[in-house]
Simulated scan of single mutants.
Amino acid sequence: MIFAVFMISVSSGSGLSQYTNVKNALNQFHITSLYPKNKNGQTYGSAAYATSPETEPDLILATGVDGTEGYLLRKDMEGELPKTPEEAIAMQNSRSPEGHDIPLYDKDGETVIGVFRVGGE
């Protein structure tokens, strides 16, 4: 059914904007149908079920450095993005070879229950 709607909209000349609308609707459906929400409205679960970075849950299932299972905030995993190529190089050169720690949360997205190491060995 969705494919048929997509094909009709493409043939009617409004294809690109309709495609974007359909893609966004499918991503939202994927997120809300696969992942439960916590009391704060954040989705949580394994990123293994995501079909793209846009469909990953807000809280991603992970195991902390001490074996504790919890969730990472997607925004913590993504980190700050550089604004220029020079800033990207500076950020890369400033990274520690041991990596860095980010909080590991309970599914409520508020309670810190451990740490997760990003990068390093």
Rank of each mutant, 00 (worst) to 15 (best):
Y19S: 06
M77G: 14
A90C: 04
V65G: 14
Y19N: 10
Y44E: 08
L16D: 05
I89R: 14
K107E: 06
R74G: 07
T43P: 08
S46G: 09
L73S: 07
H100W: 15
S46M: 07
G120R: 10
T68V: 11
D101T: 12
S96Q: 13
A50W: 00
N40W: 08
L73G: 11
G99T: 08
S12T: 07
K37S: 14
S12V: 10
M1Y: 05
N27L: 00
N38S: 08
N38D: 06
N24M: 02
I8A: 03
G70C: 13
G114C: 11
D76W: 05
Y105G: 05
S12I: 02
E86K: 14
G15D: 06
R95G: 13
S12L: 09
G109A: 06
K23A: 01
D66K: 03
D108G: 03
S52V: 03
V115L: 15
F3H: 04
I31W: 00
L16F: 02
G41T: 05
H30S: 00
A25S: 07
T68I: 03
G64E: 10
S17A: 11
N27T: 01
I89T: 15
K37E: 07
G114D: 12
G79W: 13
V10T: 07
G67S: 10
V112P: 10
F116H: 14
K83Y: 13
Y71G: 04
G13E: 06
V10N: 06
D108C: 02
N93Y: 15
V65F: 14
P85F: 15
G41H: 01
K37L: 07
R95E: 06
T55K: 00
E54G: 01
E86W: 09
I31R: 01
V10L: 12
M91R: 07
D76N: 13
I31T: 04
T111I: 04
P97M: 14
V112F: 07
S46N: 14
M1Q: 05
G99P: 07
R74D: 09
E87D: 15
E98I: 14
P103N: 13
D66Y: 05
H100G: 03
I113G: 06
P53V: 02
T32N: 04
E54P: 00
P82D: 12
Y19K: 01
E110F: 09
T32L: 11
G45P: 04
A25E: 08
L16P: 10
P85M: 12
G13Y: 03
E69F: 08
H100Q: 05
E56K: 06
A90Q: 15
L73K: 15
D108P: 00
D66V: 05
M77A: 11
Q92D: 12
F116D: 13
P36Y: 03
N40L: 01
A48E: 04
I89Q: 11
P36M: 10
N93V: 15
T43D: 02
H30Q: 04
A62F: 06
N21S: 11
E56T: 01
K23M: 01
G70E: 08
E56I: 02
L34K: 04
P36W: 10
S9P: 10
Y19R: 01
Y49Q: 09
E87F: 14
H100F: 07
V5P: 04
G99H: 12
N40C: 09
M77F: 08
D101Q: 15
A48N: 08
T55Q: 01
Y19W: 00
E80I: 06
V65L: 12
A47T: 11
N21V: 02
P103L: 08
